[in-house]
């Protein structure tokens, strides 16, 4: 009984915390089915549209080579896909990537992998930087 009560309280606590977070973000909690319906109803965002969301941490075009965060520009496609799928599956502890990756579909991960694989693996702030391979 005690244990059940404790668990009930715990889950109520988690729910209210979750509700707070959702309130702060201004949205409602969606089921997996609802999310799938939203994804299926629209054309997939381009690899670039998805990948440009990574730039705040990994640098413009994923080409920030001067920080501790790993650059993504020029990363091998299979490395990117394996890592993102591992993050999505919460295969090992990470700081934030498992919470970033869980929203992406296989096709979206692949589109981002293609995009980053096509970027030049050099620091983008270099004066002679040209971006993607010609």
């Amino acid at each position: 009984m005690k244990r059940t009560l404790f668990l009930a309280l715990l889950s109520a606590g988690l729910l209210s915390l979750n509700a707070q977070a959702v309130a702060a973000e201004g949205g409602a909690k969606l089921t997996d089915a609802q999310i799938k319906a939203i994804i299926d109803a629209q054309p997939m965002p381009t690899g670039k549209m998805l990948a440009d969301n990574c730039s705040a941490c990994h640098g413009t075009l994923g080409a920030e080579f001067n920080e501790a965060m790993p650059p993504l520009a020029g990363m091998k496609k299979e490395n990117f896909i394996k890592l993102m799928k591992d993050y999505r599956a919460n295969a090992f502890p990470t700081i934030v990537m498992h919470d970033v990756a869980y929203v992406f579909t296989d096709a979206e991960i692949e589109a981002m992998a293609d995009y980053f694989a096509a970027q030049k693996a050099e620091e983008w702030t270099r004066p002679d930087f040209k971006g993607a391979h010609e």
Partner: peptide
């Protein structure tokens, strides 16, 4: 950390975006 994803829904409900957080 907080991670929030806003997907375009095509509708006008929720101002056109869903939220996962």
């Amino acid at each position: 950390t907080i991670t929030a994803t806003f997907r375009y829904t095509g509708g006008i409900k929720d101002k056109g975006f869903s939220t996962q957080v």
